[in-house]
Nucleic acid binder design. Sequence first.
DNA 1: CAGTGGTCTAGACCACATG
DNA 2: ATGTGGTCTAGACCACTGG
Lengths: 265, 265
Amino acid sequence: MTDTEPLLLTLAAPAFDARSLRPIWKQIADRLHAACVDGRLLGDARLPGENRMAEIFGVTRVTMRRALARLQQEGVLQARKGVGIFVRPMPLRYRLDHGNRFADGLNLPGAKIGATTLTLERAQAEAEEAEALHIAPGDAVVRLTRLRAVDDAPVYLSRKTFPVATLPEFEAAYAARSSVRDVFQAHGIASYQRVQTRVSGGFASDAEAAALRLSPRMPVLRTVALNAAPDGRIIEYNLGTWPLTAVELVLTPLDPSQTGHSDAD
Amino acid sequence: MTDTEPLLLTLAAPAFDARSLRPIWKQIADRLHAACVDGRLLGDARLPGENRMAEIFGVTRVTMRRALARLQQEGVLQARKGVGIFVRPMPLRYRLDHGNRFADGLNLPGAKIGATTLTLERAQAEAEEAEALHIAPGDAVVRLTRLRAVDDAPVYLSRKTFPVATLPEFEAAYAARSSVRDVFQAHGIASYQRVQTRVSGGFASDAEAAALRLSPRMPVLRTVALNAAPDGRIIEYNLGTWPLTAVELVLTPLDPSQTGHSDAD
DNA sequence: CAGTGGTCTAGACCACATG
DNA sequence: ATGTGGTCTAGACCACTGG
């Protein structure tokens, strides 16, 4: 955890272009962004306080905050109230095969993959879930939320919904190894298949932001994946949320020979 | 084009919660957002100036601008310098089948679909395009940029790249009906197939922002689609850019029986 | 407690688009 | 020429987090 102040002083050294050519806050943001990308500012590094940084760059705190806000929106920095501003470890675009299990689809051989089960509870199906699962709104479902991290940086929050009618022993089967595939197998479902993937953009809810360590309303990518048993019944509705710039989803037409035996996320 | 000021007065009427419960600028943004969603503020409506709005809501212009900035980021409003602030016609999530031709995948029977060819020119393949097309960087390519709009709201900017070696008569074949499928057919390629779709998030470049009528650096969705001829050669690299909240891409495993005869976007 | 980020104000100057 | 949005300043108060 080295001191970042000397570097910032070098960033602030070159004079800024006369105002109104390019806004000062953008020029500041550009320089900080470049430093984060090329490695002069490493992941998890802590920046000086806003007052100090404003002093360093020779602007008001308000102007400094504009630059910092932009960099937060782009996922380069992340502020924590009462604590400080930190460089977000740059995932810089995992390319991952959606439809495969998380760790397999991820093209990072040396990375440390983390998985945490956040909640596992019974609930009533919401309208969209119910339609996808071919059950009635309000029917009993199991809801499982999990968080995946790469090198301790959270990159994927998933909220899976399962119909209780099809998987009555979910909790017991999941307990042993925290594996959804185990649950399916315990209910006589040996394999399953991705039948639809939807991708959309949006803005993080408070809950999503907290889990992914983002500010609320940050832009995110959302995926909805529907998995079906061999007999065609939809058995899983999976809503995934990703920081906007964390990932590049790769979707190739399914090769039937390798369909479905993985613990897909 | 009705006057929006009376409505804003009603929005500003209820007192704001004591400060520090929820920031005033968020409360203002919430009320405006709600009005845009439920139709009290219609698409393309022009709002009063920032000074006037600040007066209406009883805050400083700076605070007013924070609320407006948030709504712009979310794609609800769009400011034009020297002109005014306008309600963005709410596409509110087209659900469209990627892999089909644009108009077919779009689930809006009554909508007016627009298509504009922006540029058509020869260029040298960039690194990523070259890799995807299995040619060398710098090889001659045809680059075609088009813009699609729904009810006059631009929702999709596509930049297609084709290898000149495979499609030497591109311009001539395209001229007649501005159809890429025609170009393929003129070169003896009767059908083609989507072999890969990639989806990622990012922030609009200046060019993308201008074409889509967004502010620069607004969050966007990007798609990369690779199409191949029946013999397996990649014949099209298509980079698409969408306003973040404009669309929900639906990707279903390809049904071989209906693969490839469309003028896919 | 001290330091941090989050919010808000009052007033100013500028570049731009339109009439 | 006017009104628009875009930028910037100086100073203030608050809530949160940590030691």
